[in-house]
Design a protein around this nucleic acid. Sequence first.
DNA 1: TCCAGTTTGTTCTCACGTTCACAAAGTGCT
DNA 2: AGCACTTTGTGAACGTGAGAACAAACTGGA
Lengths: 218, 218
Amino acid sequence: MTAKATSESARDIPEATVARLPVYLRALVTLSESGTATCSSEELAAAAGVNSAKLRKDLSYLGSYGTRGVGYDVDYLRYQIAREIGQTQDWPVVIVGIGNLGHALANYSGFRSRGFRVVALLDADPDRHHEVVAGVDVRPFDDLEKIVAAQGVAIGVIATPANAAQDVADRMVAAGVRSILNFAPVVLNVPEGVDVRKVDLSIELQILAYHEQRKANA
Amino acid sequence: MTAKATSESARDIPEATVARLPVYLRALVTLSESGTATCSSEELAAAAGVNSAKLRKDLSYLGSYGTRGVGYDVDYLRYQIAREIGQTQDWPVVIVGIGNLGHALANYSGFRSRGFRVVALLDADPDRHHEVVAGVDVRPFDDLEKIVAAQGVAIGVIATPANAAQDVADRMVAAGVRSILNFAPVVLNVPEGVDVRKVDLSIELQILAYHEQRKANA
DNA sequence: TCCAGTTTGTTCTCACGTTCACAAAGTGCT
DNA sequence: AGCACTTTGTGAACGTGAGAACAAACTGGA
């Protein structure tokens, strides 16, 4: 909405860097809470579990927010990263599929504290309707369009079984959702312009098992 | 244990490829269940959501399991990938931290069907002990060493709050666990030789929010 | 057997990501 | 002010990953 057409905000940040910014932000919050006012790239890198050169390069994509010979002001840098990744605004989110995982997600406090507000929990199973999870009551999946429109929801979370996920995604996209976080173990097909990120619990374990097997055979 | 010191199994597969093998495997299982005996790289790539050139290159690291002019035998390739990533063997797993997420993980059927067997659920809170989740009863965290030794557990899952995670990791490593899947939002410090993979639910949402913000400002 | 058609496995090129190494830019003591 | 010291920001080298393109290898029909 703001009339910034200058190149100031037009820098494009590499994907790998974007994925690390939330980690830096978390480390900065911890430092801030422990009363640290200033930190060097070395300290922050250690707290975030990365190489300090990588950290400095990542931060350089945002701008020059450090002071040579001194380091970074913790609160200032924290604000700059938060703004860059959109954490200074409020993101309404819907969660579809209130099984075990949906429950866990609805109750996860890390969403709320990072600007995500769960505005609705939806499930196709009528037995679950009007159950209250984390202070929000579970409603019929068919309310999706109404809720998305009314609350301006741009981000949806899919925590349904695999066979329902594509249908849910189609409905979400049609309703106006533009970003989807998918926990169902299927590859979703979505139109151009819609972002999907997938979290697959068993794939992570399988990757560990691969390396474990390698260690055992070494 | 086997005396294979030959170079046959010594190929090292790129990390990016390892991360995709479970996806291919899942697609093959689906194809197999739908009665498909043979598939081309094009078909399999579509089912897995990747480029066919990438798929062929990935598979070439495992060996030459296709037939030119024909394609891949679904069941044969499925077995080869399963073997490569260790899914033909049984992996005992312990889960520590039986809150909302721990419940969801314990109940997740995708683990069992991929060779992972949850042998113990541990929690520090005595109120949770002897609660039964997914047919396994919750036991005191102090039983960790005993269970790891008795069952030969190599993989541990951490689903505790952030402040407990490092302690749990230290105990796991001391007990003999060599791979850790960490759901707690902290960077774990572990000794050389121990693998850690991290799944962070809110980071994924934050990455989506970043892109969402970009779309809105475009 | 030969030939047209199909599909794999691999080579080559380009893009992206990581790390090193250092000039630039600050601080604070004398 | 000058100088020793610290730490950032970045250019350049290196390594890994993605995709295009094609030769090699197979099928099936004439």
